[in-house]
Design a protein around this nucleic acid. Structure first.
Lengths: 316, 316
DNA sequence: GTAAAGTATGAAACGCATTTCAGATCAAGT
DNA sequence: ACTTGATCTGAAATGCGTTTCATACTTTAC
């Protein structure tokens, strides 16, 4: 198959000229250009991309850290990233962490090793300072509210979204509002608690259901909700999958939505429409696209909040 | 930051010795080993992985071709692949094709360029011969029924699964059975038609709904189903998402499941349980894990059919 | 006591493309 | 006729780690 020098020899030119032809540089005579092209063809030449990476010092590859690839929230962000990557001729390296810190560090190290030019962190477990340390090796994009000067960020204002959702419920007469979160110490969980406290001054712990990420979790939460002595009359739920599980299980248990319990979900996942779930639409695909753009623009650090909108359906 | 030669100089050894230490080769004296480690520490040495890739001629990276990353079917396979990759210290490069042939070719070329050691094709658009040509550059794993000698495969027997589902419905008295497919010329669509013909000898075209991949498609199909003069009394549906859309829309339109129309889905996605969808459980996570193992075992070509099971719920 | 086997080390070759620098040529401008 | 500036071209340096081969010194084995 040969390399660039073989082509050079066969075409009677130097390796530099071959490289120029192969990279469409100007200043190569038509005859030599053709000779190189012919020789490359004849030798069935294929670039060794690793040599290019080594030589150029970059790989046109972006790493993506996400806890679960097949979760609709992260999957949709990933889809947006992938679409933008394709458009820009970049490759994508994904690391599914399952919320494991070591996996995350592994991914961060890909940048240190020059395996990727940039890194998009859709969900973070490591301390932020640690992540920031890595920003010397390449561009890091955080999908969370963050305004430091070393890393870009693109995020949904969970505090605002949650507050708006609570207010929406309060305005409709609800005062007993429960909510679900993924992990108690998660960043958006804290934002939710803060928002809740700002509206109601007090969070009743038994109305906070953690570990809610999947449909099954929604089913489980419905069971837990049912057993409460003082049941919330409304629930703000992590995402539409959890909401779907919750609503379907509530119905199975004989409760009415929104009669017995009103529900607001998050994401505006396609499942929300046929289930009539009132939800907060999050432009996740778009968020992914922005994250990608930030990742390939290491020089300009920006912080972009993407808007959300309440989609009113029948669950409230 | 320095490279291996800087370390060698500082430690007073040769680059070969440094490489040996860094790769845990035996035959290095304790003193020199320590000297190298100290020097590496002192220089904050970090390997340039691209040099390693170039030198070794492989990247410990597997490429994954899939049409949509955020689709539950492919997302779950990907999740299995990702889990196996992590366990084996491999990286993953993903290419979201959106069923675009050029994207697929792009991905195939990653192997030619030595960017990835192997490739897992979860869904294929290119002619099989073309894909096979690439198998000289690395290991290719197909997630479809295939028994050639150059590429491994891991797949669900769609013909068998579909036939079993139809028989299941027929045994329960259904003779007017419709079904949905993704694309008319898709491989599993052909398998479905064949299975259908084997049971009923004749496929009524208006009972075949194509372009059914998402929840929205399910909603649309429900509308189409309603408008038929002769409505099927049972539907075999592409996957549980489409089934969910179909069922929810049917209910909204005032029909009973399974009274007016029985439904069987595919995948056994978590949404199927709370919706009571009778479905064919497909071990997609496992399929992904197997695919990965095959991808990193280029020497042994295997063909593995993974089993499916009918999960009986209330939609039939 | 000598052959065989094991341990330890470095030089050099290998993998390969890109890019800078210096030199050469040719056309255009004054 | 002479200076610029643009167009070509190749040698050599650069990016960097791995691995083979040759060599030399120790042990063990018989």
């Amino acid at each position: 198959m040969g390399n660039i020098h073989d082509i050079a020899r066969l075409a009677g030119v130097s390796a530099s000229t071959v490289s120029r032809v192969l990279n469409n540089h100007p200043y190569v005579s038509t005859e030599k250009r053709q000779a190189v092209l012919d020789a490359a063809e004849q030798l069935h030449y294929e670039k060794n991309i690793n040599a290019v990476h080594l030589s150029r010092g970059k790989t046109e590859t972006i790493g993506v850290i996400l806890p679960y690839v097949n979760h609709p929230y992260f999957g949709t962000i990933l889809s947006g990233i992938a679409a933008a990557a394709e458009e820009n001729g970049f490759k994508l390296m994904i690391v599914q962490t399952k919320y494991d810190v070591n996996q995350e560090i592994d991914a961060l190290n890909m940048m240190k090793l020059k395996q990727v030019d940039g890194l998009i962190i859709t969900s973070r477990e490591c301390p932020i300072e640690m992540v920031e340390d890595y920003s010397t090796y390449g561009s890091i994009v955080l999908c969370e509210a963050w305004t430091g000067s070393q890393m870009s960020s693109v995020y949904i204002n969970h505090f605002k979204a949650f507050k708006e959702a609570i207010t929406f419920l309060k305005d409709r007469g609800h005062s007993k509002i429960g909510y679900t979160i993924v992990r108690v110490d998660g960043k958006s969980s804290i934002a939710r608690r803060n928002a809740y406290e700002e509206v109601f001054h007090y969070v009743r712990d038994e109305w906070v259901f953690d570990n809610s990420l999947t449909i099954e979790d929604g089913v489980r939460v419905a069971g837990e909700w049912k057993e409460l002595e003082k049941r919330p009359t409304a629930m703000l739920i992590t995402n539409d999958f959890v909401a779907a599980g919750f609503i379907l299980e509530c119905r199975r248990l004989g409760f009415q939505i929104p009669g017995d319990v009103a529900v607001i979900g998050f994401d505006n996942h396609p499942i929300a429409a046929p289930l009539g779930i009132t939800t907060i639409d999050l432009p996740l695909q778009r968020l992914g696209e922005i994250a990608f753009q930030q990742a390939i623009s290491p020089t300009e650090i920006t912080h972009q909040e993407v808007p959300f909108t309440i989609v009113k359906r029948e669950s409230v």
